[in-house]
Amino acid sequence: LDITFHVDGKNIHVHGASEEVVRIIEELIKNNARAEEIKETLERLLR
């Protein structure tokens, strides 16, 4: 699975993920999660 995301100002662009995963990533970023935390969360979800 190949998910890429980047933050452009306040806009979060996520590619290669389901809508549910996109929402989770957006929440994590809004809550100022570190990249490592986001990665760990995604790995748990995608197991």
Score class of each variant (00 low, 15 high):
Leu1Asp: 07
Leu1Met: 14
Leu1Tyr: 14
Leu1Phe: 12
Asp2Trp: 03
Asp2Arg: 02
Asp2Gly: 03
Asp2Met: 04
Asp2Thr: 06
Asp2His: 09
Ile3Trp: 15
Ile3Cys: 09
Ile3Val: 12
Ile3His: 14
Ile3Glu: 04
Ile3Tyr: 15
Ile3Phe: 15
Ile3Arg: 05
Thr4Trp: 13
Thr4Arg: 10
Thr4Val: 13
Thr4His: 15
Thr4Tyr: 15
Thr4Lys: 06
Phe5Val: 15
Phe5Asp: 06
Phe5Leu: 15
Phe5Trp: 07
Phe5Gly: 06
Phe5Ser: 06
Phe5Thr: 06
Phe5Met: 13
Phe5His: 08
Phe5Pro: 04
His6Gln: 14
His6Arg: 04
His6Ala: 07
His6Gly: 05
His6Leu: 14
Val7Ser: 03
Val7Met: 03
Val7Arg: 00
Val7Pro: 08
Val7Gln: 03
Asp8Thr: 01
Asp8His: 04
Asp8Cys: 06
Gly9Glu: 04
Gly9Pro: 00
Lys10Pro: 02
Lys10Tyr: 11
Lys10Glu: 15
Asn11Leu: 14
Asn11His: 14
Asn11Phe: 14
Asn11Glu: 15
Asn11Gln: 14
Asn11Met: 15
Ile12Ala: 00
Ile12Gly: 00
Ile12Asp: 00
Ile12Thr: 01
His13Ile: 10
His13Lys: 05
His13Ser: 06
His13Gly: 01
His15Glu: 05
His15Asn: 06
His15Tyr: 06
His15Lys: 11
His15Ile: 11
Gly16His: 07
Gly16Pro: 01
Gly16Tyr: 04
Gly16Arg: 05
Gly16Glu: 05
Ala17Asn: 01
Ser18Gly: 06
Ser18Gln: 05
Ser18Glu: 03
Ser18Ala: 06
Ser18Arg: 04
Ser18Lys: 06
Glu19Leu: 13
Glu19Thr: 13
Glu19His: 11
Glu19Arg: 09
Glu19Asp: 11
Glu19Ala: 13
Glu20Leu: 08
Glu20Ala: 09
Glu20Ile: 08
Glu20Asn: 07
Glu20Ser: 10
Glu20Arg: 07
Glu20Cys: 03
Val21Trp: 09
Val21Tyr: 03
Val22Cys: 02
Arg23Tyr: 08
Arg23Ala: 12
Arg23Leu: 10
Arg23Met: 12
Arg23Pro: 01
Ile24Tyr: 12
Ile24His: 10
Ile24Met: 11
Ile24Thr: 11
Ile24Phe: 12
Ile24Ala: 10
Ile24Ser: 06
Ile24Cys: 02
Ile24Asn: 05
Ile25Leu: 06
Ile25Pro: 00
Ile25Ser: 00
Ile25Thr: 01
Ile25Cys: 03
Glu26Tyr: 09
Glu26Asp: 11
Glu27Gly: 10
Glu27Phe: 07
Glu27Val: 08
Glu27Thr: 10
Glu27His: 12
Leu28Val: 02
Ile29Ala: 02
Ile29Lys: 02
Ile29Met: 06
Ile29Gly: 01
Ile29His: 02
Lys30Phe: 10
Lys30Glu: 08
Lys30Gln: 10
Asn31Ala: 13
Asn31His: 11
Asn31Asp: 09
Asn31Phe: 03
Asn31Glu: 08
Asn32Cys: 04
Asn32Arg: 10
Asn32Phe: 07
Asn32Tyr: 05
Asn32Ala: 09
Asn32Leu: 08
Ala33Ser: 11
Ala33Asn: 06
Ala33Val: 10
Ala33Tyr: 06
Ala33Thr: 10
Arg34Lys: 14
Arg34Ser: 13
Arg34Gln: 09
Arg34Thr: 13
Arg34Cys: 07
Arg34Glu: 09
Ala35Trp: 15
Ala35Pro: 09
Ala35Cys: 08
Ala35Tyr: 15
Ala35Gly: 10
Ala35Thr: 06
Glu36His: 13
Glu36Asp: 13
Glu36Cys: 07
Glu36Phe: 06
Glu37Ser: 09
Glu37Trp: 06
Glu37Cys: 08
Glu37Arg: 08
Ile38Lys: 01
Ile38Leu: 08
Ile38Thr: 02
Ile38Arg: 01
Ile38Phe: 08
Ile38Trp: 04
Lys39Ala: 10
Lys39Glu: 14
Lys39Gly: 11
Lys39Phe: 15
Lys39Gln: 13
Lys39Trp: 15
Glu40Ile: 13
Glu40Gly: 12
Glu40Arg: 12
Glu40Asp: 13
Glu40Pro: 02
Thr41Ile: 14
Thr41Val: 14
Thr41His: 10
Thr41Lys: 11
Thr41Cys: 07
Leu42Lys: 00
Leu42Gln: 00
Leu42Asp: 00
Leu42Trp: 02
Leu42Pro: 00
Glu43Arg: 10
Glu43Ser: 11
Glu43Ile: 10
Glu43Thr: 11
Arg44Glu: 11
Arg44Met: 12
Arg44Gly: 10
Arg44His: 13
Arg44Phe: 10
Arg44Trp: 05
Arg44Leu: 11
Arg44Lys: 13
Leu45Cys: 04
Leu45Val: 09
Leu45Phe: 06
Leu45Ala: 06
Leu46Gln: 09
Leu46Pro: 04
Leu46Thr: 10
Leu46Phe: 07
Arg47Thr: 15
Arg47Lys: 13
Arg47Asp: 13
Arg47Tyr: 04
Arg47Val: 15
Arg47Ile: 15
